[in-house]
Design a protein around this nucleic acid. Structure first.
Lengths: 162, 162
DNA sequence: GGAATTTAATTGACATATAAACTATTCACA
DNA sequence: TGTGAATAGTTTATATGTCAATTAAATTCC
């Protein structure tokens, strides 16, 4: 049950053991996230689009004709306000996003997916969905559900009111 | 067994369900990593140091008087080569790191923790180790070990020769 | 109705990241 | 031994992410 030197530890080439399992789990989460991010990045690379950009486009597709205020897009990502403005600028320059000031609340900028953006997403959908099947590697559906449940608990413990 | 709307899904305010549990697990990993990163970031904020910087200093402390070539430091982080140069520059300017060209292999730059760097780390150690106890929130040691084991399998599936 | 507050978004400054191109040094091996 | 390949590190360019300050519009509340 107890694998001798600890694989993660060897991975990091650390000399000292982890302070606690808590510590080790946190590092495992951070490093696995990097692996996952890189994996999706490679899937998207041929389309010259990054994972956060792809996520924004998918969010806008979900919003449909109603569009979505800039900060609502940010709220659905990890991202804070300033980052989303820049990213939206890039997506706009590439012709995938359109923006218009909201009539109802003139402070808001509504963002929409363009037809070009929708076409791009359609091209990406198939390889991307196929990637989902590979991202968790050798894990069973049951393992995935366990991870989902446990990590949910971690996030919950750190969550603001929500 | 099947929780009705899915908490993560609600978190993301997505309309459509995840394509698969694989998909959902990947998103859970990415979002939890962000939570963990932010948590450690807040612990370190009073010391005006970032998590990656702190990791570099700890690696150099581990290396001791022998020091460590720049790219060896990078190898122990997620980080690729160019990033480590900049970060080391910043740590040098702050007086926490010292550098010297290796005599044995004149291509290498050996990096060392300075006495000031060591003092800083000592100040951070206690609050940081205390944070380890909180980072995994309500999870038991057993849960942590489960997460460690499952995520290890995910990384393994994506690993290069190693 | 109008001053104070809040909210949506942007700007500027800085830290991480990654890819590509480059310099300097070392190594492999014919 | 000497040339071509590999390695260590930096530079440049671009993208993501965060904080603090700012602008403009909407809301609160006397």
């Amino acid at each position: 049950m107890k694998q001798p030197p600890g694989r993660l530890q060897r991975e990091l080439r650390q000399r000292r053991p982890f302070v606690s399992v808590s510590d080790e789990a946190a590092v495992a989460i951070l490093r696995t996230a990097d692996v996952v991010r890189r994996f999706y990045g490679e899937v998207l690379a041929p389309f010259e689009i990054t994972l956060p950009q792809y996520n924004v486009l998918r969010i806008l597709r979900g919003a449909g004709d109603a569009g979505l205020p800039t900060l609502d897009v940010a709220a659905r990502l990890i991202e804070s306000a300033p980052g989303i403005t820049l990213m939206m600028d890039r997506l706009f320059k590439r012709g995938w996003v359109r923006r218009r000031r909201a009539r109802a609340d003139r402070r808001q900028i509504l963002c929409y997916l363009t037809a070009e953006g929708a076409t791009l997403l359609e091209q990406i959908d198939t390889p991307f969905d196929a990637a989902h099947a590979r991202v968790m590697g050798g894990m069973t559906a049951r393992d995935c559900r366990t991870v989902i449940r446990l990590l949910e608990r971690v996030r919950q413990a750190h969550s603001s009111p929500d």
